[in-house]
Structure formats: structure tokens, C-alpha cells
Amino acid sequence: MKLAAKLENLTKHYVLKSETVRALRGVSFDVPEGDYVAIMGPSGSGKSTLLNLLGCLDRPTSGAMYLGDANVAKMNDNQLSYTRATRIGFVFQSYNLIQQLTVVENIEVPLYYQGRLSKSDRARCLELAEMVGLKDRLGHRPAQLSGGQQQRVAIARSLVNDPYFVLADEPTGNLDSVTTDEILRLFENLNQLGKTIILVTHEDEVSAHAKRVIRLRDGLVQTDELTKNRIVLN
């Protein structure tokens, strides 16, 4: 099976004045294409650090992380940027849409940084907007949308570059339970369409929708289990 990401003994140390914080102390796992992974763990266990590495926002202290054939650990800043623009979709807890842009324009942003914006790309943006149910809101600004709608835009944006995987950091953290269900359903649908999803959460209701749960503790993988979803779906 093809892998969306492969982590080999990843470590991340933060060197401070008084001490060195070992945020990750050797994390290894594979993410096959089409997987739906929830990363959990207590506060300070290294979830955010891991997410930053997966999102190519940071380089590991040691170890290797492969996206396709490329080892992210060896990339320079521009290569990391390019990898983010082409291989990774981000969904944030606080949506992080760009205020001065409309819905479509927000969806287009990753393409813009890839240096391409053809007619077919624009058509694709419209398709995605339709898929997340915002077809009639294309010209709206983020401020004119509800939280759930904004998160839908963010999800559409995360898919526009056809990424290896979508990284979601507490994507439902700011939403009420009804909207949370909608968003989680959307993720499930995407996953059924073959999209790989990695999300960080501390809520069991959220992780229950994933196929696989990785629990971190003190910078190490404590457990890595398949949930019953996988059994049901497969």
C-alpha cells in the first residue's frame, strides 16, 4: 500500500537556556493513503510538535520523515514552503481564513503559492466550494460566515492542492456540538472518497470517528490502535 507519510524515529528537542526539552523522543509510524488518524494525548505530550513536523512547518532534530520519496528532514525553508503548498492541507482550530479575501479567493490561496491559477484550477475551487456546501456563498467574506461555514471553507482550501494528507488541529474545538457533527461527517465523507486525514484532538467523540488512534505520552507513541470504524468500513 502506498504511504502518505512515513515517520522514522523522529525526535524534536527544544534547546532553552536552562534545559533541553525533549518534546518528541523517537516517534515512528506510517500513514497509508486513505487513512484517518486521530492523534491524542495529554497536554505537553508532544501533539503540537508532531503536527508541526507533519505539516512541514518545522524540521526534526533527528530522524526522517518521508512524504512520497522526499525526506522533509533534509529540506530548506523554500523547499518546505513548496512542500506545504503542494502536499499538505491544513485545517486549524480557529479556521484561519484570510479576512480580506472572499470564500473562493481563500480556497485559491495554496494554488497561488504554487504559482499556478489556471481556468481548470478555478473550476476546481468552485467544485470544492460546492462540495462543502458553500456554493451560494462564494463572494462572501469570512466575517459574514458562521464558524461552521468558515471551517468548511478551510476544509475546501485544504483540499485544493490535492494533498498527500489533510492535517487538522482540533478542527472542532471552536464549534458547537451540532456543527461539530457536520464537520466530522464531512471529514468522514472525504475519507471515504480516499482522502488521508490526520487530526489532533483531545475529545473521544472526535477520535471515535477516526479509523486509527495514536496516543502520545512524553514524546513517545504510547498506543497505536485501529478503532472499530476501520473494521466496520473495511
Binding site: 514552503s81 506545504r84 503542494t86 490561496v109 503559492y113 482550501r157
Partner: peptide, 16 residues
């Protein structure tokens, strides 16, 4: 700052 972070996450290089 936040917008800059978002743009960087979405693939903007420093030059962008």
C-alpha cells in the same frame, strides 16, 4: 502576524 502564519502554512515562501 496570524495572516502571515497562515500564508506560510499554506505554502508562501519568505520571498512571497
Amino acid at each position: 502576524t496570524r495572516e502571515i502564519g497562515v500564508r506560510r502554512a499554506l505554502g508562501a515562501r519568505r520571498a512571497d
